[in-house]
Computed example of a mutant assay.
Amino acid sequence: MASNGNGCVKDANLIRIGSRESELALKQTYMVRDALQKVHPQLKFEIITMKTKGDKILSVALSKIGSKSLFTKELELALEEGQVDMVVHSLKDLPTTLPEGLVVGCVSEREDPRDAVIMHPSHPTATLATLPKASVIGTSSVRRAAQLKRKYPDLRFESVRGNLNTRLRKLDTADDYAALILAAAGVLRMGWSDRISQYLDDDDCMHAVGQGALGVECREDDTSILDLLAGIAHHTTTLATIAERAFMRTLEGGCSAPVAVHTKVTGDILDLKGGVWSLDGSEEQVDSSSVTLKESDTSQENEEHQAKKAKSIITHCGVVALRGWERRMEQAHTLGSSLANTLLGRGAESILRAAKAQNDAHLPPNNPNLPPSTNLMNSAAQSVSSS
């Protein structure tokens, strides 16, 4: 038996995993649980579900809510209070700066990070390029809308909220949308690959930071949980997503501004492409860069890494560096930050500022008749999710 940090005693062999309660969130949590169970068959795992603010407020576009930690805050509070030992998130929902004392203990192997087109039953063989002019495309993401407006100016893009089941039902049972744009990873994990009409490659629409990967958050001082999670971490996905998160953090982008990336790891080469767009897609800044990832060959630098590690856990944008890969993680972080600074030097800052100002202008004012959580979200600074 052991204390959970709240003075309560818990079974040392019982690991409690926090999750959102949607079907997709649970499928993703089961994936993490099963991976941990395979490595640690002697342990027991319990899943504890809860709703987040993002799950409760579905009538407002994500970009108009303006909240930090839209899909993570309640789960993080449970983690801080010792009610759960770890929390499974879609990594794209996790802000690049985490609450003090919390870290991403591991990042899972990435599912296909691209976006996918799901057509209305009346357009079974269509693509975005062949849809009738003025067709309405549903998407919850300003990132997708901005990029696709440039590519398909004759289409209309409107917000659609709800979990995947809800959005597909809205598509299939009415004529409001000709198609939906969704993260391919979620559709594939739900077992709906047959509904995908088209995958969008980076020339059409670069994906969200962290899209397709799962991040498992835990307490920074919980060494036993960190050791468990290290056993299921996926190294190349971690490298790619650290670069992406560093890109995002340096830009300070989020739900309110269109920021997107495309990464590829080939051997020791990490390629990162990143971009920023105006809300209407009329302005863009896009560039790419790469780095050769290698651990230091000098004993002096290795000793410095070990000394640094001995003092505290090394993290990059909240993600714990993997043992033996610390130098590679630093290089990935530098790649993302440097690419973002390149774009900022070319005018990306003014594009981001204008996009955020446009969204802020549409935020509903605090209203004493609204639930407190709604007003709290309206007054928060920004979201880093790009659903």
Rank of each mutant, 00 (worst) to 15 (best):
S256K: 06
S19D: 05
L91C: 08
H207D: 13
S108N: 06
T241G: 02
G82K: 08
N366D: 14
G66W: 01
M377C: 13
I17L: 14
F71V: 02
A179F: 08
Q198R: 07
H207G: 14
R161G: 13
F45C: 14
R16Q: 09
P113G: 09
I48F: 00
S19G: 06
T173I: 09
G18K: 04
S63R: 05
D201A: 11
R219F: 00
G274P: 11
L188W: 03
S379M: 02
P368L: 04
Q147W: 07
L182C: 04
L148R: 12
L79C: 08
L270C: 13
G54E: 12
R327A: 14
R219T: 01
H234E: 00
E100H: 01
G267Y: 01
S337C: 06
A260M: 03
G275R: 14
L376Y: 13
M50R: 15
V39G: 12
S299T: 04
G212K: 05
K149C: 13
T29L: 10
H40S: 14
K149G: 11
N369Q: 07
L339F: 08
K68S: 01
A257H: 03
L164S: 09
G101V: 03
A145W: 10
L293C: 10
M31L: 06
L188K: 10
D221F: 03
A243R: 03
K264D: 11
D112V: 02
D271K: 10
S385W: 00
E326Y: 11
K151P: 08
A35E: 00
D172M: 11
A260I: 00
L14F: 03
T250P: 02
L251W: 03
M206I: 00
L14Y: 03
M31A: 07
I196V: 01
V286I: 15
A243P: 08
L370A: 11
N366E: 15
I314G: 11
L339M: 07
A184T: 06
T125G: 02
K311G: 09
M248C: 12
R20H: 12
H89Q: 04
R114W: 00
E303K: 13
S63Q: 04
D268L: 05
V103C: 06
A213F: 10
A310C: 12
A134M: 13
E21W: 07
